[in-house]
Amino acid sequence: MTGQADTRRYPGIGPAARLAFAFLYAPLAVVVAYSFNSGPIVSRWEGFSLVWYREVLERSDVRDAVWVSLRVAVAASAAGTALALLAALGIVAMVRRGSPLAVGFLSTPLLVPEIVTAVGTLSFFVLLDFERGMTTLVLAHTAFCIPFALLPIRARLAELDPAVFEAASDLGASGFRLFRRVTLPLLVPGIVSGALLAFIISLDDYLISAFVAGPTSTTLPIFLFGLIRRGASPLINAVSTLLLLVTVAVLTASYITGKWRKPK
C-alpha cells in the first residue's frame, strides 16, 4: 500500500490533539501558578510565596469546611460502596432481563439533571421534616456515590473466573464464609477503586450540597463558591490547588489498583 494513504495518519490530527491537551491543562496550570503569587491580586504576579497556603492552614473557616467535606465524603463513599457491592453481587444472580433493568435503575442519579435532584431532594427533606445538616448531606451524597462505585466493582466481578467460586463451594465454602474468604478478597481492587471514585465525586459536589446542607454544615465546595462569588483571590487558587492535588492523588491510587487488577 502507498504511504500517503495510511489510515492511521490523518493530516492535522496530531497538532489538533496537542492543542486539545493544552486546552485541558493550561487553565489548571494557571490556577496552580497563581496560587504561589505573593500579592493579593490573582493575576498580577508579585513574586513567589507560600503565603496563601499559610492562610489556608490558619483560617478556621477553611478548616471547618474541609472537615465537613471529609466527613461527608468518607461516610457517603463508604455507604455508597457497601450498597454498590451488595448490588453488584445481587445483579450477577439476577435472571437475564432483570440485571440491565437494575443497573439502569441504579444509574438514574447520573441521568437526572443535578439541579432537579438538588431542588427535589431539598423539597423531599422539607416534606419529611428532616433537619438539614450532616445527615441530609450524607444521604444525598450516598445516592450519587452508588453508580460511581458500582462501575469498577461490576467490572472486577466480570473479570473473575467462575471456576474459583465453583472450586470454593466444592470445597465446602458457602454463604457468608464464601463471601468473606473468597469473594471479598478477590473483589478488593474493584471495591477500592469504586470507593475512591465515589470519594472524589462526593468531595467535589457543589449543587446538591448547596441545597441540602444546613447553616453549620458548609462543605468545601459551598465555601469555595461563596469566595468565588466575592471575586478571584489567590486564596481560592491555593484551596483549588490543594483540591486538585487530592484529586490527582486519589485518581492515581485508583489507577494503580486498576493496573494491579488487570494482568495475572
Binding site: A84, A87, L89, G90, A93, L106, I146
Partner: peptide, 11 residues
C-alpha cells in the same frame, strides 16, 4: 455468589 436479593438495599 449470592442471591439477587442482595441488590435490594441499593435499589
Amino acid at each position: 455468589v449470592g442471591t439477587r436479593w442482595l441488590a435490594s438495599p441499593a435499589l
